[in-house]
Design a protein around this nucleic acid. Structure first.
Length: 222
DNA sequence: AAACAAGGCAACCGCCACCGG
DNA sequence: TCCGGTGGCGGTTGCCTTGTT
């Protein structure tokens, strides 16, 4: 993947580079960490011959170069989990990320700030409002769970479905019906909800860490 | 085809907590 | 106790891509 994001010239004052990482820098960092391990980021940066701050190296490694980083679409299960955890933890992105193996706090934060806040905006309400939180709990999350369950019932091909989907326990009780929502608002949700989940439909995940039951259990812990 | 707007996301910034000397 | 170094975290920025006019 090519590099994007803020571009900045070399920092001539401190001889430190900023901005997008080059392939060579990535290689230096990966090779150094595979040989010596991670940690002590400032000295690591110097020892590896990188003209970067320790912070920059750490961020690059954690968010991009780490071998177990998952990239690509946030799956519906992950969406549901993010909504669930955010309702309990708020903007504690790193804590949320710990429940989604391979996802970084940065990625989850970006997801929230782009996708979720966009939907809140379309519904003309504040993303931090109780009204939006209610709608997420009572409409979007049950719908996501329903969609996940529907997808899991589809015939599974080797290409499109991983083993964890096939082994999902489908005898879980149905989700409780959504709580009553103001009618006009609910119709807004109908419009928006489809758009929200649409991008994921064409690329169903090859595997999922969480079953529907896991997520329902999480909801019941509320 | 060109211009413009909006979205996505990598990377940076500032603050804070922790730790060892 | 103080202080500097380090790492973690949430918020923000700004470039590139994609969609729209």
């Amino acid at each position: 993947m090519e590099f994007r994001g803020r571009a900045a010239p070399d920092d001539h004052e401190s001889d430190l580079r900023r901005g997008p990482w080059t392939t060579d820098e990535d290689l230096l960092l990966v090779n150094y960490i595979s040989a010596h391990g991670e940690g002590r980021w400032n000295s690591l940066a110097r020892s590896a011959g990188l003209r970067r701050t320790g912070k920059s190296c750490r961020l690059r490694w954690l968010n991009y170069l780490r071998p177990d980083v998952r990239r690509g679409n946030i799956t519906p299960e992950e969406q549901l989990l993010i909504l669930e955890l955010h309702s309990r933890l708020g903007n504690r992105w790193s804590k949320i990320a710990r429940h989604l193996p391979g996802r970084t706090d940065n990625e989850i934060k970006n997801y929230w700030r782009t996708r979720v806040q966009k939907q809140a905006k379309q519904m003309r309400c504040d993303v931090d409002s109780e009204r939006f939180a209610d709608m997420v709990r009572s409409v979007w999350m049950p719908r996501l769970a329903e969609r996940i369950r529907e997808q899991s019932k589809l015939p599974c091909s080797a290409e499109t479905s991983g083993a964890s989907f096939e082994t999902q326990r489908l005898s879980s009780p149905p989700m409780p019906p959504p709580a009553a929502a103001p009618e006009s608002f609910a119709s807004d949700v109908d419009d928006v909800c489809g758009q929200w989940m649409q991008p994921e439909q064409s690329e169903w995940p090859a595997e999922s860490m969480w079953t529907v039951e896991d997520i329902i259990w999480l909801q019941q812990q509320l």
